[in-house]
Write a protein that binds this DNA or RNA. Structure first.
Lengths: 185, 185, 185, 185
DNA sequence: CATGAATGAGCATTCATTCAT
DNA sequence: GATGAATGAATGCTCATTCAT
């Protein structure tokens, strides 16, 4: 593993454990087994490191979320695919999920990253508008549906992550039914 | 307003604007119009101040949420009351809502406060178990329903806070329908 | 002596001995007998400290240089007064003289300070122009005379500072004669 | 141009623009188009590089200053030659002039270089003593004359460098007259 | 109680220098 | 010789906290 990857891995672990503010760059370097200065050869600032982690997370997440997606899917199938893939990705990369939660509520998130995050949101938005057009949604407020869905998704994911002993497939299925029963028809 | 209240008010404002880490105690004191040392006469540490703010927020929130609640309400009525009151409270105290979001994702939250937060959760938990007992829920995983509901509630609230020009009553009604359509019957 | 003065005194001494770059703020604080943080209570940055020292120097210098000056003096008398006072001041405050030499050749000198320094220069400039108008100067290039005079003054001062055992009054007199013999008539 | 020369050229440029402290060796290497490590193949330390630049400057300067000098010249002619050649050299190599100003006021100047610089000073000293012996100087303090002259020379040069649009020959002539009018007879 | 000057541990970042390739 | 990644000591500055008045 390259030094850069070792630094990012160490940072991810420590940020999740102690928070951004509670993790000095010196500790990250030590955990990664490199010198303090080396960290700054790869990331110009601590903020740069944090944002790089986020971008890495985002690209991995997107790749996973759109897996198996096709224009041929019905809206319901597409939403279910989105819901399922998102949860599966978080189970695969729980550290990244936790990291993102911290990142999203930190001052480090900047406009560039907000914009990149919006892309995912816009995708969901488009799906729902399509569904509304087809008359398969009970409600018409696209944005409200999006936010409702996002919240439900994140907290459902948290629950599943904390209860991995339960049958994950069932939980995903069950939670999607809760969603669809409320918004779809 | 007492000095203590002035400090808490200033802290709430600044924490929401600049974050916990971005707000030195010196700035809080200045904003509150008291000396640097005075802050520490009322709060032993910065962490103590943050936790005190949270406890204040929690008690106000609980008071609001349980308003009009009675054992005589049906489960559906009780859940709707919970949902509606929670959103109404956030609209009344948006600073507190924002503060709690930051707090919940920070390292400041400690076990004592987690426990106190759980009380609210346990109340919802009890309600849902009662509903499951009555057979009015489609699903049986109480905790999953709780988490799903919590996420949906928080993000719905965020949406409403950012779109106050829309009809709040309608949004609350609509979002509750989404919830109930998915979980209830 | 106030803490602020103690810091400035220590800084002056160390800057002269080790240079700006060779003098960490921590050493200044230690030499002044205060904590590292205290230095930054009085000076927002190291640069601020350096500039404050310069401004202090400048005001002391000006006060000294204009002592005994009057509009009634002839140009020759005025220039001699300037020359003599400037050297006398440097003898009284040799640390400040040395400090200014370093400061003037450092990147710390900024436009504000350059402007303030110019005031002295403008005064000399005005004197010389007056003299040229009276026809008592051999040469007519005011600015050239100013620069020539400034250089001669500074280096003469350096020599006198390094040879305090010689008769200072004589050296001042002699050097002024060199100047006047060359430029005046 | 050899790598060593490229490094020295880059260093000269950057030192003049950003100062010694404001110019990391990495930037010098980049500007010179060589790798970071290569710089240290030619100069053991940054200080070594700075001193090497100075020595190069000094040898070029000396060569220029003694051009046309002969034992047959009268003292006045010799001093004028010195004065004129020194200014002409600075006009030809303004970067070197600027560099030397910074160098002379920095902690990098060491005893070896001070000694080498003294050679020039001793030459002037000898000339003036000869003149005093011949009775052609108004004053007898050789060292005072030397310092006075040095300061006048440097600052006159600065003026000329900043005002190249004026007639350089005239400025040199005029400034020498100021000098000689004051010290000679 | 109120003050605010003083403290000093702590941290992000820089940069001259080394050395394995 | 040339390279440039790696090093880690060094430093300016911050800020929660203390305490004498």
């Amino acid at each position: 593993m390259s030094k850069k990857e070792m630094i990012m891995e160490a940072a991810l672990k420590l940020f999740n454990e102690f928070g951004f503010h509670g993790t000095p760059t010196s500790k990250i370097a030590k955990e990664a087994g490199v010198s303090n200065g080396t960290l700054f050869n790869y990331f110009s600032t601590k903020e740069d490191l944090i944002n790089s982690l986020y971008l890495k997370e985002l690209s991995g997440c997107k790749e996973c979320i759109f897996k198996g997606f096709s224009e041929d899917l019905s809206v319901k199938e597409a939403v279910e695919s989105l819901w399922t893939n998102a949860i599966r990705w978080s189970i695969k990369c729980p550290d990244m999920f936790k990291f993102r939660e911290q990142f999203a509520h930190s001052p480090y998130i900047n406009n560039i990253n907000k914009e990149k995050t919006e892309e995912l949101f816009r995708f969901a938005h488009g799906l729902i508008e399509k569904g509304i057009g087809e008359g398969i949604f009970k409600h018409k407020n696209t944005k409200l549906i999006c936010h409702y869905m996002e919240g439900a998704l994140i907290h459902t994911t948290k629950y599943i992550l904390e209860n991995k002993d339960e049958n994950v497939d069932d939980l995903i299925k069950e939670s999607f039914n809760m969603l669809w029963g409320g918004v779809g028809s």
